[in-house]
Design a protein around this nucleic acid. Structure first.
Lengths: 193, 193
DNA sequence: GATGGACTTGAACGATCGTTCAAGCTAAAA
DNA sequence: TTTTAGCTTGAACGATCGTTCAAGTCCATC
């Protein structure tokens, strides 16, 4: 638990997150993790309890980063434009080292069998939180006159969440960035009416 | 290979498909498969070569069924309505035993690490085929005056493919069928303009 | 320099993984 | 009834899985 340990805890979690995000929970072995974060089994288990425990920390880290990213966009853009910018940065840009276009939460939800019910519920909860954030941004957009006030923001938020899942997964199958960018335009065009 | 074997090959593949679709490639063990299809390792390997070989057969079976399902819809409805009906039946209805809402091809693409490149390419190819079928249905819709002729059907097909990925994945997270039905309505409303 | 406590190490565990293969079974041919 | 060919069986293989733990290392304190 001590941050004075040889391995800075946050740094370790970040590295583990990237690996889990890339390969998924089951395809990432403890051996893979040991190599990536440069820790031996004993240390990992002392710090995180289990592979599942470390994965939970990774999910948390991933979501916190996503929240920060979206909030960063709202500092630069109007609510609606911030959402679109967030979509673009998450679906297309790979200036940083993004291991895959697919959302880690969605990947978790998709790959895990019912045996890992606890992790599944965790991922579902985080996705719900993201949808709530979308909704509050949409409400804000209404207040600022950027979005038609007659719209149901909860419904729109669901719509956007669904779109983002589709966009990211589609981007995984299709390397052509131009057509993906086109799709994002289509999506944000469609919510105007 | 003989169809006269104790286990009918197609029936075995169908059972294997359901299991793989439910649990995914890596979370399905040969033991799970043995129990489900009631065959011993030796027979399975004699018939399919490997776990990966059986999985390929499962993917093929899954796609053939999907094609048939969509084509079945076109027999009953106009092209555009057939597409929507296909979406509904695939995202919402569970009158048959559908192990999960998520598309098996998407699940495969999402869960597999780069090591299984061959299976990944296979799934990508099938998805492309599905998109092509969407496109040809959209063109047909234009010819019958159901869809504005100025639309780019290839672009629309991409859009629908992406939507379907999103819808099915979203349905996995949200049990509320009413809001999912709403989302489908939103999607098909959005392609009219 | 000796002591004590915290962190790290890596060999080893039992379980399970995908896979192999010699032996057994079954039913048609001779 | 005996032979034969093909399918099925399940014990067993080596590899790898997640996990444990006794021993070692490190460093602040006395």
């Amino acid at each position: 638990m001590a941050n004075t340990a040889k391995h800075n805890r946050d740094e370790v979690i970040q590295k583990a997150t990237m690996l889990f995000w890339e390969k998924g929970f089951h395809s990432t072995s403890m051996r893979d993790l040991q190599d990536r974060i440069d820790m031996r089994p004993g240390s990992i288990y002392a710090a995180f309890g289990s592979k599942e425990g470390l994965f939970k920390e990774a999910l948390k880290f991933y979501v916190e980063n996503s929240f920060e990213k979206l909030e960063g966009c709202t500092k630069e853009y109007s609510p609606l434009r911030a959402l679109k910018q967030f979509f673009v940065s998450v679906v297309i840009c790979n200036d940083e080292q993004r291991p895959t276009e697919v959302c880690m939460l969605v990947k978790t939800l998709t790959e895990l069998p019912p045996e890992n019910a606890e992790l599944i519920e965790e991922a579902k909860g985080y996705l719900k939180g993201m949808e709530d954030l979308f909704a509050s941004l949409l409400t804000q957009a209404q207040e600022e006159g950027e979005l038609d006030s007659s719209k149901d923001t909860r419904r729109l938020a669901r719509y956007l969440q669904m779109q983002l899942m589709g966009l990211r997964t589609y981007a995984r199958t299709n390397a052509d960035k131009e057509s993906v960018k086109q799709l994002i335009d289509d999506v944000f065009e469609s919510i105007r009416f």
